[in-house]
Design a protein around this nucleic acid. Structure first.
Length: 258
DNA sequence: ATGTCCTCTCTTAGAGGA
């Protein structure tokens, strides 16, 4: 089973690219982030026509997450991260697909930092960490996939020294990611490619893709059940080079059948 | 500060976010 995560940066503006990639890559499950569309503007029919069932949590202008499944039912579990009723950002959705609990998340960016946006990011991280511990205790296979807006280590940034004050790379943000992973999660791409430079995002500015000035911020965290089933992982880097591409590239894992 | 791209509006230019 192939599971992918893709920050599309506008699901409607990106629809031709998304459909082209779905047809080419044929993932079984897809987590999308940054729909940038309200609930009623999600392109459900086009996704259905491409062969995918979908659930989504939209929001006008910003955020928005969705889970797609090919030839499978999606059983929605929740569409918000627990812990703050006042948080109205659409950044989290969770479903059971093919016996796996799939959590699709879009962690806050946090810039400019320091400031209220970084505070919100850190609080969101704490809520995610609390919820992740509960998911781990359920004993079902879990994958938490999405745009974490964190480069976990120096190898995940083209120029680490330039990013130390940025909300995606500040020490406390990296520490929060490590605290989460240390619950027993597997960073799937890093496990299979321990020393390789892997990026999932290249800024639109200054020809970042052409210069390979990238960041690794889209991640798969696997529960121990799924760690044992992990066969392959990678980034569909070429998609970033397509006309009208997102600033992120689709990232994927392949799991063995049980 | 800037670069680019997306979405929305007090809309065809500018603001906010990333």
């Amino acid at each position: 089973m192939k599971i992918a995560t893709y920050n599309v940066n506008g699901v409607n503006g990106r629809l031709p690219v998304l459909l082209r990639w779905l047809a080419e890559s044929q993932p079984d499950v897809v987590c999308l982030q940054e729909l940038k569309a309200p609930e009623e503007k999600f392109p459900e029919q086009a996704i259905l026509d491409a062969g995918y069932n979908a659930i989504w949590h939209g929001q006008k202008s910003w955020n928005g997450v969705a889970i797609l499944a090919r030839n499978a039912e999606l059983q929605e579990v929740r569409r918000a991260l627990p812990g703050d009723e006042e948080d109205l950002h659409s950044r989290y959705i969770e479903a059971i697909v093919n016996g796996i609990l799939v959590a699709c998340l879009y962690l806050p960016n946090g810039n400019p930092a320091p400031g209220p946006k970084l505070d919100y990011k850190m609080k969101w991280f704490e809520r995610l960490t609390i919820h992740a511990a509960e998911l781990m205790e359920f004993g079902v296979p879990v994958v938490m996939a999405g745009d974490y807006n964190v480069m976990p280590t120096e190898i995940d940034v083209y120029k680490p020294e330039r990013w130390v004050d940025d909300a995606l790379f500040r020490p406390e943000v990296r520490a929060a990611f490590k605290t989460l992973v240390d619950q027993g999660w597997t960073d799937a791409l890093r496990k299979l490619h321990p020393n390789e430079v892997i990026y999932t995002f290249w800024d639109y500015f200054r020809n970042a893709f052409g210069r390979n000035a990238g960041l690794r911020i889209d991640h798969f965290l696997l529960s121990p059940h799924l760690d044992k089933r992990l066969l392959a992982a990678g980034v569909d880097r070429h998609v970033r080079g397509w006309e009208k591409s997102s600033d992120h590239a689709p990232t994927w894992i392949e799991l063995a059948d049980e």
